Simulated scan of single mutants.
Amino acid sequence: MRVDVFSTKPYDREFLTLLAQGSGLDFRFHEARLSKETVAIAHGAKVVCAFVNDDLGAGVIGSLAAMGVAMIALRCAGYNHVDLIAARDAGIKVARVPAYSPHAVAEHAVALILTLNRKTHRAFNRVREGNFALDGLMGFDMHDKVVGIVGTGLIGRVLARIMSGFGCKVLAFDPQPNAECKSLGVIYVPMDELLKRSNIITLHCPLTPATHHLINDDAIAAMKHGVMLINTSRGAVIDTRAVILGLKSGRIGALGLDVYEEEGDLFFEDLSGSYIPDDIFARLLTFPNVLITGHQGFFTQEALTAIATTTVANVVAFAREGVPMHPVAYPA
């Protein structure tokens, strides 16, 4: 069975090729993102393997169906970029990787927190220039600080364990409280109370209509002055314009992002020889208390192995039984 992989990077080729040995699958790798302009590349494929910033809207799905593509295998957990109604109507199965390494993303969130707090990124550059002054590098003890976790799924639970280990007081908001978190001493509170009490707020919720721009002007106004805000979930959970205003006012004292709501034209590409076309993103980079990484929270050996393993298993199950191992349910 031919599988066309879009948005391919060297590591995708390496891990998928390794984990597909003996599966009988014929992987074809394409560096191009899947879009209306590139969809014709998949002519002859039965499965298209896509990533977070590929276009899987109704137009692309219609073209895939017309070419005989029968399955979309996502190399990610989120599927908000897939028009599931169009896939359902076209008879295309959609599969995802529901979990790969919650430790990878949770630990990356901690890296953002510690870097912003102790300013090790700025200290690194200073020391390389022979500047050993400590002015401007003061942080705070993590111990006894209040950390608010929005979303206590697999990633949020791992983060709760780590923050508890630091001696933090952990609050959480989730419509479905988790018993493991409660056993750690995590206290579930309403969202407005979490915003009001937390020194650090970290987001680990999926992107849904209910969470789109969850962090907006009103939410920021309810936060403690100088709060640290971390987002490793989905970019559009945050209203970027509102966050910029929060940074300018000092309400947000530090911002760490691994995702961005308009990241599709930026992340996973090398623009160092060009320019950043997004003026709002460029504005974020002017703040000394903002730290942005390019959607690398998932980027560990363990996570990439798990992603490739599950992706191959999804396609093999579909080839043998007509149903992937981890299908995405169509809307009712």
Rank of each mutant, 00 (worst) to 15 (best):
I280W: 09
G24F: 06
F15N: 04
G297Y: 01
P324I: 12
G59L: 04
T17I: 05
V97N: 11
G165W: 05
D4L: 05
L56E: 04
D54M: 03
G24A: 05
V69P: 01
L195R: 09
V316M: 12
A242H: 06
G185E: 14
R122K: 14
L34A: 10
C205K: 00
A104S: 11
A50N: 04
L194C: 13
A317Q: 12
D141Y: 08
T115R: 10
T202W: 03
Y330L: 06
V60Q: 07
V110M: 15
G167K: 04
M142V: 05
N314C: 03
T8P: 00
G294R: 09
L304R: 13
T300S: 09
M223L: 06
T202M: 08
P327M: 06
T305N: 14
E14R: 12
I149G: 03
M142T: 09
V316A: 08
G22A: 04
G226R: 03
N289L: 00
L257V: 03
M191A: 10
S249Q: 09
A70V: 12
L247H: 08
F298R: 03
C168K: 11
N216T: 05
Y260P: 04
Q296T: 15
A70F: 01
A77V: 14
E262D: 14
F166A: 08
V105K: 04
H81L: 06
G57F: 00
L271V: 13
D265A: 15
A70K: 15
H108T: 14
L154E: 15
V5S: 02
E37M: 02
I85C: 07
L284D: 01
L116A: 11
T232A: 09
A179D: 14
L159A: 15
P288L: 01
H143F: 12
L114Y: 01
M228V: 10
A50S: 13
G24N: 03
R126D: 13
M138S: 11
G78W: 11
A236K: 04
F267Y: 12
S101E: 15
R234G: 10
V97H: 11
H108E: 11
A65L: 08
L203C: 11
K46Q: 09
L114D: 09
D141G: 04
L255P: 05
T286S: 13
C181G: 10
H326L: 00
H213R: 10
D279R: 13
F29M: 03
A133V: 06
A133S: 15
V290C: 10
A123N: 06
K182N: 10
D270H: 03
F140G: 01
V39A: 14
R122S: 14
N199Q: 13
R126C: 07
R283Y: 00
A254S: 15
L266N: 06
R2A: 01
